[in-house]
Design a protein around this nucleic acid. Structure first.
Lengths: 149, 149
DNA sequence: GACTTTTTTGACTTTGTTTGACTTTTTGAA
DNA sequence: TTCAAAAAGTCAAACAAAGTCAAAAAAGTC
């Protein structure tokens, strides 16, 4: 499919260029052999802010479309995270934290589920509530340390 | 019966293709000589998650239906694993177990490290030795359940 | 044979893609 | 300063799939 092909091309370029590219819509479309608005379509449907991209552009002579792949400053974010943990976390908050890690792409879907599993009340059912919560905090710190690695 | 014929075809393809196929509903229906929704029917009635299949699809130009057969070996192995866990595990044995999961490709390197992290004596330092060990067992069972998913 | 469940079919809906015509913004030359 | 050319943006129509649903038909069950 055309749209996918174009998306792959853009991704590859982003990879090669360290996360920022600038392209001229008409030229690019021409090169591919498609209509210019197809390029717009691909960009608006795939390179969205939700997916971690920033788009900037300018019209007129010498115009361009700039695509930037947002890269989260992992370690910084993680340190921040580490500090936010405190020394006791409820199951619900733990889930939110994990969702967050997933949301920023620091862990995968599966990792999220694994971690929710081991932190669930079910997994920790042997412990009383206070111990559970405090344990989660320690576990979390351990996770962050592993991610910083 | 039509539905069964189609189901057999799909199973055969899955077999030949190592458990993953992608098909275009209209083409496929055409090839068989049936109406497209018949294909949908077969998929929803036979290739269900309960039966160990995962279905993914996309509409629109270049759309497809992807059918994935979950490995049974995996689940079998995991059940075995689950039973082997017992109700108490030392740190060292936990590591061995995790290494095992990694060795058989059931978890990734990173997942292994994350899990070792949360199961380490460090993470569980608040607890006395016996509780730690028993907790690890519960956590492990939770992990296996997540992996079976 | 009456009743229930499963299958078959086709009409209609929703989602995703492609294309082209038209609009807006920007630049540079007369 | 004005205007033409060069971009990119917008939008809607046409097309390409897959999804849904319900009625009719067939197959089972007792």
């Amino acid at each position: 499919m055309l749209a996918d092909t174009i998306a792959r091309m853009i991704e590859k370029m982003l990879d090669e260029r360290g996360g920022v590219i600038e392209l001229q819509r008409n030229d690019f479309a021409n090169q591919i052999g498609c209509v210019p608005s197809q390029v717009s379509y691909v960009i608006t449907s795939r390179f969205t802010p939700q997916n971690g991209y920033i788009i900037e552009s300018r019209r007129g002579g010498g115009g361009y479309i700039r695509i930037i792949k947002k890269e989260i400053h992992r370690d910084e974010y993680l340190m921040h995270f580490y500090c936010a943990i405190g020394d006791s976390i409820e199951e619900k908050d733990a889930y939110t934290f994990i969702q967050n890690l997933f949301g920023t792409g620091l862990i995968t879907d599966r990792e999220a589920r694994l971690l929710m599993g081991v932190m669930s009340n079910t997994a920790l059912q042997k412990l009383d509530n206070a111990t559970r919560a405090s344990l989660r905090a320690t576990m979390f710190k351990q996770i962050v340390l592993t991610l910083i690695h």
